[in-house]
Amino acid sequence: MPQVTYIEHSGTEHRIELEAGKSVMQGAIDNGIPGIDADCGGECACATCHVYVDEAWLAKCGTAGEQEASMLSFAATAEPNSRLSCQITMSPELDGLVVRMPEAQH
């Protein structure tokens, strides 16, 4: 199964296996990984599952859609490599993906 590594703002790493087709947000929630809130449950409507995608994976993750970009523009600490993890769907090509969490999800 493809693997994802989540790195908390403090530096703590969590590596999990995530079934293709599930979102990177869901992987964090199902595994109780702190630092991803996901208030809206994956509707791209709250920007509390914000992550920074490791440079090496940016292109493979694709770019944010219009709604996602709008929501991200209100996040306090958005960077060019910011994404909402509910909008990144796991696939074999993303095996090994590394994402980092911001200081806070608001």
């Binding site: 929630i29 208030d39 509707e43 709250c46 509390t48 709008s70 209100f74 806070a104």
Partner: peptide, 20 residues
């Protein structure tokens, strides 16, 4: 568990600025 799924702050682009 996961108590923040409520609608009181709205969702989408108009979600409450001051929620936290």
């Amino acid at each position: 568990p996961r108590p923040r799924g409520h609608l009181s702050f709205g969702f989408g682009i108009h979600r409450c600025v001051g929620n936290r």
